[in-house]
Design a protein around this nucleic acid. Structure first.
Lengths: 204, 204, 204, 204
DNA sequence: GATGAATGAGTTTTCATTCAT
DNA sequence: GATGAATGAAAACTCATTCAT
C-alpha cells in the first residue's frame, strides 16, 4: 500500500462529498422549480439517474434532503455576494448597484427557481423554516452593510433601513418571474432598469 | 302557495350562491395559508364542517375549486381598489400613496395568505396560471392608470413604468411576511413606512 | 320520510360499527397468526376483499388497527369467561377447572393465533403494550377471583397466588402450539389432561 | 518464517471462528429482544460496528444468520443443563428442582430475550422452524430424563409426562417477562417460588 | 343536496441483497 | 476481509375522485 489508510479515508470522504453535492444541486434545481410538494423523490432520483433508494443512503428523509439543498444553494449564493462586496471599492452608490445587479443576474440566469426557496418560507415544513430564516438573515447582511455605510456617509437617504432592504429583497426575488422571457440582450436591459429603479430607494 | 315556481328557483339559486361563496372564502384562506399541495379537500371540507363529497357537488375538481377561489378573492380585492381610485381626487402622489396604503392594509390585515396566490404562480397547475395572470393584469391596471397619469403630468419621474409596477407589486405582496408581527399601532407605522419607501420610486 | 333523522344516523352508525367489527375480526386472525410485522395491510385488505385505502378510512394507521383488533379480541374473550364464572356454582375446584377448560378450548379452537397477541407483548409497538397489559390484567382477574376464594376457603393450597396465575396463564396461552394437531376427540383428551395438570398447582 | 502454512491457516480459521461467535452472540441478543422482523441487518451491523456488507461475508442471508444465532444460543443453553444434570445426584425431586431453578436463572439473568426464540416459533421463517424444533426437543430431553426417572421410581406422580413438560416449558420460558423487575434479592425469591410451584406438578 | 364508503394511483420510506473496489 | 454504494421490491400512508343511497 503506497497510500496510508488516512489518505484512503480522505479520498472516500471527498468522493462522498462530491456525490452529495451532485444530489443537492439537482434537488435544489427541482425543488426551486416546482416547490416541495411538486417534486417527488422519484423525480429527483430520475434526474440523477439513480433509484429512490439511493437517495436514502445519503439523506434520511425528503425533509432532510430539501433542507440540505436549500442550505447549499443559499450559502453558495451569499458567498458569491460576500466575495463581490469584499472586492469592491468606490462610492457606496456604485457598490450597492453592483450588488443588486449581481444578485438579480444570479437569480435570473442561474437560479431562476430559487425564488420559491426564500420568498415563501410558509410552504416549507417547520423544520426548514428556521434554517431558511437564518440563511435569509445572512444574505440580508451583505446588503445591509453597504446600505448602512451609505446612509452614514450621507450618500444615501432612506425611509428606513429595514423597510428598504425588504423592498429590495422582494423585488430581486421576484425578478426571475418577469425577466425570464426575452432575448439575453433585452434581458440585460431589463435587469439594468430594475437596478436603477431600486437605486431610487436610496436617492437623496 | 304564495310563491311562484320562479321565485322558488330564485331562492334556491341564491342559497346555492351563498353556499358557494362560503366555500370559496374558506378555500381561499386555506390555500393562501398553505398552498395548493399543502391543502387537501379533506381540510377544506373539515373547516366547512361538511364532507369531501359535498364539495364535488359544487365543484367538479380540486383545480376548479382553487381557480374559483383565487378568482373570487382577486376580483374582490381589485374591485375595492378600483372603487377607491374612482372616489379619489387630489394630486397623483396623494392618490398613488392612498392606493398603495390601501393595498398593503388589505394584504396584511385581511388576506395575509394571499401572497402565495399571486406571487408564486409557478406553484399552481397550468390551468390556473392563465386566470391568475389575467387577474394580476387587471390588478396592475389600477396602479398603472394612476402611475401613468402622474408621469404624464410630470408629477412622477420613473425609471420605467413596467419595472416600477413590478417592484411595487413585489414589495406589497411580500408585506404580510414581515409586517404581520407587532401591535396594531406598530404595524400601521410599518405600513406607512412601506408606502413612503415605495413613493421614492416615483420621486422626481 | 317515515324514519327520523336520528334513526337514520343510528342505522348508519350501526352499519359502520358492523363493518369495523368485520375488519377487526379479520385483522385479529391475521395478526394472531403471523404477528405484527408478518402481516401487511395489503394482506388484511385482501382477506376482506377491499383495498388498502379503505382500511385507512376506518383506522388512521396500522398501529391503530392492531390496537383495536387486540382490544376487541381480548375483551370478547374475557367477557365470555366472566359470564361463565358468574353462571357457575359448586365447589371452587370444579369452578376453577371449568374456567381453565373453557379458556384453553377457546384458545385452541377459536383463537389459535391469539397466543402472540398476549404472550409476547415485546413484539408490539410501545403504544400497544399498555393496552395489552391492561387487557391481560382484566383477564387475570377472572381466574384470580376464583383462586383466591378457594385459597381462603381452604380448598386450595398454593405456593403463591401470583406465581400460580402466571404458570396457568403461560401454559394456557401456549396450548394452541402443541394441541392443535390430532383429531378433535384426541384434542379434547389433551385439553382435559392440561386442565388436570394445572389443577395440581392448587392441590392440597 | 517459524510458523508453517498450516499453522497460519489454523490461526486464520480460529480468528474467523471468533468473529463468527461475536456476530452470533450479538445477533442472538438483538433478535431475542425484538424478533425477526424487528431487527434489520443494519441494526446488527451497527451494534458490531461493522457494515452490513461485512455480514454477508460470513452469512449468505439474514435467515442463515438468524438460524445460526438461534442454534448457538440453544446449544449453549442445553449444554449447560446437560452438564448440570450429569453432575447431579440425590433424589429425583432435588435434581428436577435444581434443573428448573437453573433453567429459569439462565433465562431471566442471561437470555431474558430468548423467550421469543423458542416460545413462538411461528414467527420464524419456515427454514428456521425445523432447527428450532430440533433444539427444543434436545432441550426437552434433559427434563424428560429426570422426570421419567422420578415417575418410574415412584417419587413423582404426574398427569402425563408430555403435558407436564409442556407446562414446565411454557412457565419457564415466560418467566423473564414477569420476573425481570425487582431487586436481585427479590428476583431470586420469585424464581424460587416459581420452581416450587412447578414442583407441585409432580407431587404425589 | 349531502354523505359515507370505497378506490387506485402515487408518495415516502425500509431493507435484504449485490457488487466493484 | 471489509466497505461504500446502489438496487428493487415491498410496505405504510395520502388523497383526489367516484358513486350508491
Amino acid at each position: 500500500m503506497t497510500t496510508s489508510a488516512g489518505e484512503a479515508v480522505g479520498r472516500v470522504q471527498r468522493k462522498r462529498g462530491r456525490r452529495i453535492q451532485q444530489i443537492l444541486t439537482t434537488a435544489a434545481e427541482l425543488f426551486g422549480e416546482r416547490g416541495y410538494d411538486g417534486v417527488s423523490l422519484e423525480d429527483v432520483a430520475e434526474r440523477l439517474d439513480v433509484t429512490k433508494g439511493s437517495l436514502y443512503y445519503y439523506f434520511s428523509s425528503k425533509d432532510e434532503l430539501v433542507t440540505a439543498a436549500i442550505e447549499t444553494l443559499g450559502n453558495d449564493w451569499t458567498d458569491r455576494l460576500e466575495r463581490l462586496r469584499a472586492a469592491q471599492d468606490g462610492p457606496p452608490a456604485a457598490r450597492l448597484r453592483g450588488l443588486i445587479r449581481a444578485h438579480v443576474a444570479i437569480a435570473v440566469n442561474e437560479y431562476p427557481a430559487a425564488l420559491r426557496l426564500f420568498l415563501v418560507p410558509g410552504t416549507w415544513p417547520q423544520a426548514q423554516r428556521t434554517r431558511i430564516t437564518a440563511l435569509r438573515r445572512r444574505h440580508d447582511q451583505v446588503f445591509r452593510t453597504v446600505l448602512t455605510e451609505g446612509v452614514e456617509s450621507g450618500d444615501f437617504a432612506v425611509v428606513g433601513i429595514d423597510v428598504t432592504l425588504q423592498v429590495m429583497h422582494a423585488a430581486m426575488s421576484q425578478a426571475p418571474l418577469w425577466c425570464a422571457e426575452g432575448a439575453p440582450g433585452e434581458r440585460d436591459r431589463t435587469l439594468d432598469e430594475l437596478a436603477d429603479a431600486l437605486m431610487k430607494l436610496v436617492a437623496r
